[in-house]
Amino acid sequence: MTLRILLQAAPSSSLEQEVLCSDVTTSRPAGGGEEEIMSEERWEAQCGGFISQSQVYHQKEFSAKEFFETYLSADSHPALYEEVVGFPMRQLHKELSSVLLNSGVASEFQSFPVHVFVSPHLNNYFLLPITTFPGHIKGKTLIEFTLGPVLFKLLVCCEYFEEITVLEFNDECSMELKKWLKKHPEAIDWTHVSQFACSLDGKSNGWREKNEKVRERVKQVIDCDITADTLVAPGVLPPADCLLCIWGLDVISKDQDDFQKNLEKMAALLKCGGHLLLFGTINAKLYKVGEHSFHIVNYDEEFLRKALRDCGFGFENLENRPRGEFSDSIIYDSFVYVRARKVRNP
């Protein structure tokens, strides 16, 4: 059974797409646009031609607070903030929530917060197969591979997982996250994101309680050495029910071979039958934090599909979303979101 839901979204003549919960494919607008290409050329010129010399995330030059101000704060560019924070939070909420999982009754849909379904990159409607509606990802334990001192994903996941472990690869970002968890007076203020997380739950308040739930359910933050054979020492963590990675693999991997090796290390921490929720960037070049340019591994959708299959994952959902408004902070073609289940050991 399939439920067709008509949404009054902004019209989009350049983006024709239909989204299915079982397999999502998004096509890029035709042409690409001369103005957009010129913007990228100007951006690369402003970088001084240092794309090949860009730094990597786990180096000391990465400023956690500058990263927050650029991509995650209430003052960030609205389009950039939507793609980095808004879309992932809504997507996670949609995947983890159980609303309409076992019922297609229209009255239940009418009481559901519509904004959970709506994305500015989607056309006027999409299809929801009720029998496979997101919300079936269950479990007690989550391992999160983080980029930056990022809290927004935990504000969603804390409602669905009792034990959360964060793996961090940058010392400064690890320190900033631990500051927030310990209520340090100089910790980054995530109030605006906590309030948005509450709105996804259909609540107008309660953000302080949500913050406390995150602090309660994050059991540990582990500093990792990405060059080691394993991300954590054997026996430190039991296999998790779910892995979450939002751009973490992209920024710690030197090249595609390194991406594959790091994905295998991640997969080793997930139990068979568990889920991987992966966000990444297609055909990325670099991103900026302050005055520094940082490396992102470049890959396309075909490579990503093969890498996941080779690491023992079976696809349940893949969504490739073209980039929105051009930003001078990052160059990429599209965001990709994957929900996959581990079906075997690599």
Rank of each mutant, 00 (worst) to 15 (best):
S54C: 10
K285Q: 06
P149E: 07
F326V: 13
S107K: 15
P239Q: 02
K213N: 07
I130F: 11
G312T: 05
R323I: 09
V114A: 15
P149G: 08
S334I: 01
L270A: 03
P322T: 01
C158F: 00
P149K: 10
S111I: 14
F196E: 09
L308T: 01
A10Q: 14
Y287A: 03
D75R: 15
L151S: 01
C224W: 03
E162H: 02
K182C: 11
E325W: 06
D23T: 09
A267G: 09
V338F: 01
G104T: 14
I51S: 11
P113H: 06
R42L: 04
D310L: 05
K65S: 15
V19E: 10
L304W: 09
S119M: 08
L200M: 04
V236P: 01
F109S: 09
L7Y: 14
R217A: 03
D255Q: 07
C242N: 02
W190C: 15
I37L: 07
C157H: 01
V297P: 00
K140I: 07
E301Y: 05
S54K: 07
I222C: 02
E40L: 09
G86K: 08
R217D: 03
L308Q: 01
W180T: 12
S111F: 13
V116P: 05
L155P: 03
A64P: 07
R323T: 08
V336H: 09
R305A: 11
K60H: 15
I222S: 02
D333N: 11
Q195C: 12
V166N: 01
N345K: 07
Y299M: 03
K60C: 15
L7S: 13
V221H: 09
I188T: 15
T141P: 03
E316D: 02
R321L: 12
D328C: 13
V297K: 00
S107P: 09
M1A: 13
R341G: 00
Q46G: 14
L270M: 06
K306V: 07
D257Q: 00
R305Y: 10
E40F: 06
V114P: 13
V251N: 01
D300P: 02
T70K: 14
A284E: 05
E95I: 05
G290N: 11
V24K: 08
E40M: 09
Q8F: 13
H115E: 15
G280T: 05
Y57I: 01
G312M: 05
Q260H: 06
S174Q: 09
A64R: 09
E212L: 04
G32A: 06
F335N: 04
R215W: 04
F87S: 15
C224G: 02
D225Y: 00
H77I: 12
S98V: 10
P120L: 12
G202M: 10
T25H: 11
L277C: 03
G32E: 03
K265T: 01
A307C: 04
T2F: 07
Y337E: 04
T132S: 15
S73D: 04
I130D: 09
C173K: 08
K210Y: 05
E41C: 13
V236R: 10
R309S: 10
Y299H: 06
S76G: 05
F259P: 00
I164D: 03
Y160W: 13
S54P: 03
V56K: 10
A307N: 02
V297F: 00
I252W: 00
E325Y: 05
D241W: 00
D229E: 14
I246E: 06
H292P: 11
N345P: 01
F313R: 04
Y81E: 03
G274P: 02
